[in-house]
Amino acid sequence: MKYLRITFFLLLISSTVFSQNNEIKEELSQLKKQAKLIYNEGVRYAKNGNIIKAHEKFDQALLYFSDFDLPYIERAKLFLLDNKTDLAINDCNQALKINENSGEAYYLKAYIKLKSKDYQAALPEFTKSINKGFTKPQAYYYRGIIHFEMKDYSNALIDFTLAIDKKPNFSYAYNERATTKRMLNDFHGAIHDYEQALVHDSSIAIVYRNIADCKIKIGDYENALEDYSKAIKRDSNYYIALNNRGIAYYQINNFESALNDFSEVIKINKDYAPAYNNLGITKIQLQNYIGAEKDFDKAIKINPEYGEAYMNRGHARELLGKFSSACSDWKKAKELGVKEAEKYMTECE
């Protein structure tokens, strides 16, 4: 009888515990469901570009149910858009704690490393993200960029091609593949890819500039000038295109136009050392050696490691009859890795 009572009592307890567990489970399930619904609201806000509201909703979803990886991932993206990389990394790590197979969390971490130019660290993270099933075109695209930056052009070519396969209108991937081809001296192939990039998005100024750069390489200066102008038309502040158009003018001996372009570059970005260097070489052609020397001075002041500017200043100084200072400049240029400077050193002996 006694045992019967104990048994009955135990049964009562266990049934109570079971019932409590079920209630907790039920409650958690409800919280998760609620968190998911709030997360979905955040997603809708994000899609509509209301970043602040989206952020609020992801925070709220995590308050409801913290063991939920997706709000962390989406919030990490929003942090990244706001350049808060530390917070973004923290959220990615949280997401990975909850779900170690989250390919997108690896992808975001990899992207952050890529942004900080830590290519060695970013490369395996992108590969991990792809292996975990995150096979979005961007993953291949960014891995391609890393390969490119690490001068592994063959693998870069493969990744950009995979990105294009996944997203046939991926204009940026076309641009990067073109640039990779360009590095492999396939200028005609590069122009073809750049043109494909424009088919899908004709607003990207850099593509016109890139086409123009390739045309310069194949000696098609006239058309290159036209393409640079298109790039500048699409982004009047695009000083790199202006700088390169200036170079194109320089190459066809239109020094006045080159001078104008380089001067415009400086108006847009007064700290852009190459523009001063290019202004200097143009002034040399126009026989304004004193002006040229001053321009090279400015380029060197902005970038004291600017080997080409030292070399060119050496030329200007030579033309001014300042042989010893010209030699000092060529020597410095040589030290900074400008190979061409070496041959002028014999004149200094």
Binding site: V43, L70, L108, Q138, I145, P274
Partner: peptide
């Protein structure tokens, strides 16, 4: 030989307008 300097940044992704290319639009659960 005069050395004009072209900008060595060739990739589009470094260009300011595509900073948010990393952003994959999420799907609702």
């Amino acid at each position: 030989e005069m050395k004009p300097t072209t900008d060595s940044i060739y990739l589009a992704w470094t260009y300011k307008q595509i900073d948010n290319l990393f952003y994959n639009i999420p799907n609702e659960i």
